[in-house]
């Protein structure tokens, strides 16, 4: 297990996280459903987490900064999902739709 880990260069992790980030950003910008948008944002946050943990493991395994950062990101992501879902439900109760593009009560 240890050998396997040592054989994987850091940039592999960064490539995965960059891809995950781009997929998440595309999902957040292109989907016509607020829940799917939330999922895209979660992917972006987790891409950052992969970065943080990979950097921590390869560059500063003795300090706890990266671990603490990643843990806080998880907490914030959970809080963000809770707030986001609450707002989505509030909108759904009024408009019976969760398509962000249909939110057009206010115009220039």
């Amino acid at each position: 297990m240890q050998n396997l880990l040592n054989g994987i260069p850091l940039w592999w992790y960064l490539a995965v996280s960059a891809a995950l980030f781009c997929i998440g950003l595309y999902g957040a910008l292109a989907r016509k459903n607020a829940i799917a948008l939330l999922m895209g944002v979660e992917l972006m946050l987790n891409a950052a987490n992969i970065n943080l943990l990979a950097f921590w493991r390869y560059l500063a395994p003795t300090s706890s900064g990266g671990l603490a950062f990643a843990a806080f990101v998880l907490v914030i992501a959970a809080a963000e999902a809770a707030v986001g879902l609450a707002l989505i439900i509030a909108v759904y109760r009024i408009t019976r739709s969760i398509d962000p593009e249909k939110l057009d009560q206010m115009k220039l």
């Binding site: 960064l14 996280s17 980030f21 998440g24 950003l25 957040a28 910008l29 607020a34 948008l37 939330l38 895209g40 944002v41 972006m44 946050l45 891409a47 950052a48 987490n49 970065n51 943080l52 990979a54 950097f55 921590w56 560059l59 900064g65 990266g66 950062f69 990101v73 963000e80 707030v83 986001g84 707002l87 989505i88 509030a90 909108v91 109760r93 009024i94 408009t95 962000p100 939110l103 009560q105 206010m106």
Partner: peptide, 30 residues
């Protein structure tokens, strides 16, 4: 209606931009 819409729009913009910011911060860390 307007307030629910305001909350949702603020959330959508904020969630995406803060995720982008976090990715930048993770790069700063590395």
């Amino acid at each position: 209606k307007l307030s629910a819409e305001a909350g949702m729009k603020y959330f959508i913009f904020g969630a995406v931009t803060s995720a982008v910011m976090l990715f930048g911060l993770s790069l700063f860390y590395g």
